[in-house]
């Protein structure tokens, strides 16, 4: 197979993420309109905020009649994990101009982060910037398009949110991370993070997720240090 341009490679490697995110866009569009947001406002939220999980939380808060500052603050806390992603990409982004880093920050999602970070970490740094743009734009257009589908379908199929389409995201994340767990420190990080995420499941604002991230990173480092000691002793 002819090697694709980095831009196209970014799009291609993101296709599975598009499939996983599409049903979420549909559900979001349907729920937002159902919660009383106008179709224009629903599309504008997907276009401007572009952060699925916080958009879902916002819609449920709107439905509950929450005040604006509450929704803003909740959005901030739910999106805190993006700061971790931002930090994690920083070492690779040092040669990128600000004019590229700003739009890529705007487009930083769980999905594009997973795809792009993997590419950069595994040493395919060539064309990293174009690759990131390809992945980000694909996610963005996909999210907008499927939000629109949800807005349209929401009126026809009010029970859409109960169809179980939410499994798609689960499948996407599981499929992308499972092959990365072949080394013991990565596995340790995953197990520790999962355990803490289960314990902190009931905590508000997805704070359990942040605690899980910290625990996972710590476990990964500890396992790495332990295996280094073992090799040193051998």
């Amino acid at each position: 197979m002819k090697p694709a341009s980095p831009w196209l490679a970014g799009v291609r490697d993101t296709v599975p993420m598009l499939v996983g995110a599409a049903p979420f866009g549909v559900i979001f569009g349907a729920l937002a309109v159902g919660a009383g947001l106008s179709p224009v406002a629903t599309l504008a939220m997907s276009a401007c905020v572009f952060a699925g999980s916080s958009q879902f939380v916002a819609v449920s808060l709107i439905g509950a009649g929450a005040a604006l500052p509450v929704i803003w603050l909740t959005t901030l806390v739910v999106n805190l994990r993006h700061a971790l992603y931002s930090a994690s990409l920083l070492p690779y982004a040092q040669g990128w101009p600000l004019a590229a880093r700003l739009p890529l920050s705007f487009w930083l999602t769980d999905e594009s982060y997973a795809v792009v970070e993997h590419r950069l970490r595994t040493g395919l740094a060539d064309g990293g910037l174009a690759y990131a743009f390809g992945s980000s734009l694909a996610m963005y257009l996909n999210w907008l398009a499927f939000t629109a589908v949800g807005v349209l379908l929401g009126r026809e199929a009010p029970g859409l949110a109960d169809w179980g389409l939410d499994f798609a995201m689960l499948a996407t994340f599981a499929a992308i991370v499972a092959p990365q767990l072949k080394h013991r420190p990565s596995l340790a990080a995953a197990v520790a993070a999962s355990a803490v995420a289960l314990l902190g499941h009931g905590w508000p604002y997805k704070l359990g997720l942040m605690a899980a991230a910290v625990a996972g990173v710590a476990a990964g480092l500890a396992a790495e240090a332990a295996s280094a000691r073992k090799e040193g002793a051998a």
Partner: peptide, 15 residues
């Protein structure tokens, strides 16, 4: 920071 993806993604999936 290299452990961020292998920590965050399972933490999203497992619960």
């Amino acid at each position: 920071l290299r452990y961020v993806p292998v920590a965050v993604l399972p933490a999203l999936v497992v619960p």
